[in-house]
């Protein structure tokens, strides 16, 4: 058993090096903007760049719209499938897994061909239309995660029994949804929302090919034109992802506590 333990520590040690050195390296590199001394100049330059503010704001706004749309589309569907249409569940689950199978570049290629100015739905003809298209694209990318989060949340509270019990006590649909279902899946929705946020902020392919001023293309442009700012951007992007994940973990843990208390 001892030999196994040595190998385990060895493997773990290598993994720690491989995963943490790039993070440290990125941070270190981002501090090198001023010659000879460590400083936050790169961050100042980035945060002060009007392009940064513009594209970051654009992505954040788009992320929020995507989240709202995603929640509105996914939650009632998951609820309905669980309660009323369990027979179509395999099909719905298959659909939600498609975005993981079909590479995003293919999906956006399809958008460009399908919704160009010569088609029934000329979304790419205008900036506003393209923004809408991009949002739908993001919602599609986030679909697997959003659906799985909400579906798991619904599964753990057994909505069928809950609804029947509530109805036998005289509650109507609005009461059932508003006071029973929604509060219980709020945590699941929240974790899906933060995952969506993390995905949208860093996304590149869709935004680049649809020519929208999002954060992803901005980062790539910076990568080709600046030395130290990209590292600062990477640190910012990683921190945001970490923060999102931390919030999700926190929310899940808090919800477990409240559930145990009940």
């Amino acid at each position: 058993m001892k030999a196994a333990k040595i190998w385990s520590w060895f493997a773990f040690g290598l993994a720690v090096i491989y995963f943490f050195v790039p993070l440290i390296g990125t941070f270190e590199f981002s501090l090198r903007a001023r010659r000879g001394v460590y400083s936050f100049d790169a961050y100042r330059s980035v945060l002060g760049d009007p392009q940064f503010v513009a594209t970051f704001t654009y992505s954040v706004v788009l992320a929020l719209f995507t989240i709202v749309f995603g929640v509105l589309i996914v939650t009632p569907t998951a609820f309905w499938v669980r309660l009323k249409l369990p027979q179509i569940r395999p099909m719905v689950e298959f659909i939600t897994l498609l975005p993981l199978v079909i590479p995003p570049i293919i999906i956006v290629f399809g958008y460009i061909r399908l919704y160009n100015t010569a088609s029934y739905l000329p979304l790419t003809g205008s900036a506003f239309g393209t923004n809408i298209l991009l949002m739908f694209g993001y919602a599609t990318l986030a679909l697997p995660y959003m659906y799985r989060a909400v579906d798991t949340g619904l599964r753990t509270i057994d909505i069928r029994t809950l609804t029947e019990a509530a109805q036998s006590l005289g509650a109507g649909w609005t009461t059932v949804i508003g006071r029973l279902i929604l509060p219980n899946v709020l945590v699941a929705i929240l974790s899906g929302a933060f995952l969506t946020f993390a995905i949208v902020i860093g996304e590149y392919v869709l935004a680049a090919l649809l020519n929208r001023p999002a954060f992803g293309p901005y980062m790539v442009w910076m990568g080709g034109n600046r030395a130290y700012e990209p590292a600062a951007l990477a640190v910012i992007a990683f921190s945001i992802t970490w923060a999102c994940m931390a919030v999700i973990q926190l929310a899940t843990r808090l919800s477990k506590h409240t559930r145990a208390q009940r």
Binding site: I24, G202, Y204, G223, A231, L233
Partner: peptide
């Protein structure tokens, strides 16, 4: 962590 920030991280390292 995939995508653009990851590439930057490896360039920086």
């Amino acid at each position: 962590f995939a995508g653009v920030p990851l590439a930057f991280a490896f360039i920086a390292t």
